[in-house]
C-alpha cells in the first residue's frame, strides 16, 4: 500500500509553523520595495517632469510669488499613488525617493500627504540705468555685440572660402 506524502507529513511534524508573527516580529521590506514617498525639497529644481509622468495625477504643485522668489510647494497624495516609481526615475536631480516604509495607515486625508516646500530665487536683475541715459545705454550694448560678431563671421566666411 502506498502512502502519498507520507514523508512530507512526517517532516512537517517537526517543522516550525509557517505563520509569520508579524506584529510581534517586525519585518523589513525587501530591497527595492516602493513604499512611502520621500521628497527632498532642497534638491528639486521645479522642472515638473514628475507631474508630467505621473499617471494617476497624484502630484500637485502650487507656486506662490513672494519677494524672495517663487515659493514652490510639491504635494504627493499617497492615497492616489500607484507607487510605480516613474517620478523618481525621471527626476533629474534624484529629489524623489521611494522608501521601504510600507505601513501607510491613516484615518484622514492629511495622513497620506507628503509635502515639500522650497524657494526658487529669480536671477538677479541687471542694475537699472537712470531714465535719461536708458535708451542710449540700451543701444550701446546692443550695437557692441553686433559689431564684435560681424568681423568674426567675416573671418569664418573667409576661412570657408579658402
Amino acid at each position: 500500500m502506498k502512502f502519498p506524502f507520507l514523508k512530507e507529513a512526517i517532516t512537517s511534524l517537526t517543522k516550525k509553523p509557517s505563520t509569520e508573527l508579524y506584529p510581534l516580529v517586525k519585518k523589513e521590506a525587501p530591497e527595492g520595495y516602493r513604499g512611502r514617498i520621500k521628497f527632498h525639497a532642497d534638491k528639486c529644481i521645479n522642472c515638473g517632469m514628475c507631474i508630467r509622468v505621473c499617471a494617476p495625477d497624484a502630484i500637485t504643485r502650487t507656486i506662490e510669488k513672494t519677494e524672495e522668489g517663487d515659493k514652490i510647494t510639491f504635494q504627493f497624495y499617497l492615497g492616489q499613488c500607484t507607487f510605480c516609481q516613474m517620478c523618481a526615475d525621471f527626476c533629474a536631480k534624484k529629489a524623489i525617493e521611494l522608501t521601504k516604509d510600507y505601513s501607510m495607515v491613516g484615518t484622514d486625508e492629511e495622513d497620506f500627504m507628503v509635502r515639500g516646500t522650497f524657494i526658487k530665487k529669480l536671477p538677479p536683475k541687471p542694475p537699472v540705468p537712470p531714465a535719461g541715459a536708458a535708451p542710449a545705454a540700451a543701444k550701446a550694448p546692443a550695437a557692441a555685440p553686433a559689431a564684435t560678431e560681424k568681423p568674426a563671421e567675416k573671418a569664418e566666411d573667409k576661412k570657408e572660402e579658402k
Binding site: Y22, G35, C81, T82, F83, Y102, M104, V105, T107
Partner: peptide
C-alpha cells in the same frame, strides 16, 4: 471611510496594521 490603507497593493503587514486600527475604532 474610517481607516484607509495606502499602497498599490499594500503589503499584508500594512493590512494587518490597518485592521488593528479598525479594531480600536
Amino acid at each position: 471611510v474610517d481607516v484607509s490603507i495606502a499602497g498599490c497593493p499594500p503589503k499584508p503587514e500594512a493590512i494587518i496594521d490597518g485592521l488593528a486600527k479598525a479594531v480600536e475604532i
